[in-house]
């Protein structure tokens, strides 16, 4: 084959590749484009709208009695769960990392394995029955505790790895200066594993934010339900989706999680400054 022919073939192959990649990109980008543009469209529907601009859809959203409040509910549930998960998993992981227990690793793996059942679909009925008997249905604190319980094993597992990387000499140094275990945890260990704690917090928020089943089963009062559950109610009597509501609500729904990630990444940065000479 002559040299120009080879070049032409290569050019064609490259063009073909780019076209293919372009199509794949469009396929994956379309939902995002829909999410960003539809809330501002005059006639929202399944389709990505033709360029037009209105804030009317947000008016509809604002007038809905549950929509905005549900975002607040989601923030309370996610925030509460994140705080509890970080505090409990952090202290547990610190203890597990520092105290020698026979069969410690086996226990940790067993808990991790069982955790997928605790908040998984399999345990829904017993959890519901238990909370029902305790008269804790429609109680947000109870839901936060159930959600936290489901996240703790994985959180402990991840944080224990972080705790293991903290050199013991940091703690021993503080101990010799007279720091109590709680002071050591607060002054030394927690700041050093801060990236790990931030990771767990963001992860907990995201988990709770997207959780539908648990809040759906355990909260019956629409005034207490979080965004993920409320979204399910945005259909009219005929079962047709209300696109004005759904599109604006979807946008509003995704903003806090993105913000949360950005803030955490900026403030805590997922980095580790070494203080050990080696």
């Amino acid at each position: 084959m002559s040299a120009p022919a080879v070049l032409a073939r290569r050019a064609m192959a490259r063009v073909g590749l780019y076209v293919f990649v372009g199509l794949v990109l469009v396929f994956f980008a379309l939902p995002l484009v829909w999410l960003v543009t539809t809330p501002f469209a005059r006639t929202p529907s399944y389709r990505v709208p033709a360029p037009s601009f209105t804030l009317h859809n947000f008016r509809i959203l604002w007038d809905n009695p549950y929509a905005v409040r549900s975002i607040g509910n989601s923030l309370v549930l996610a925030g509460g769960t994140a705080v509890l998960a970080v505090v409990f998993a952090g202290t547990a992981a610190y203890a597990l990392s520092r105290v020698r227990l026979p069969g410690r690793d086996a226990v940790l793996y067993a808990v991790l394995l069982l955790s997928s059942i605790v908040t998984g679909t399999a345990a829904m009925v017993p959890i519901f029955l238990m909370l029902f008997q305790l008269d804790l249905i429609d109680n947000r604190l109870a839901l936060v505790l159930v959600l936290t319980g489901g996240l703790l094993p994985s959180a402990m597992f991840i944080l224990k790895d972080f705790m293991d990387t903290v050199p013991r000499s940091y703690e021993e140094s503080a101990r010799v200066f007279g720091a109590s275990p709680f002071q050591i945890l607060r002054h030394v260990v927690a700041p050093v594993v801060r990236p790990g704690l931030a990771t767990i917090a963001v992860w907990a928020v995201v988990q709770v934010w997207g959780n539908f089943l648990l809040p759906y089963i355990l909260l019956h009062d629409p005034a207490k339900q979080p965004a993920a559950v409320i979204m399910y109610t945005f259909y009219d009597e005929g079962g047709q989706p209300n696109f004005a509501l759904i599109s604006t609500f979807s946008l509003l729904y995704s903003v806090p999680v993105v913000l949360c990630y950005l803030v955490v990444n900026r403030r805590y940065g997922f980095r580790f400054q070494g203080g050990i000479k080696g």
Partner: peptide, 14 residues
Amino acid sequence: VAMVFQDYALFPHM
């Protein structure tokens, strides 16, 4: 007593 460790154990975040 005050102890100086082999790796100095300076707190990295302070």
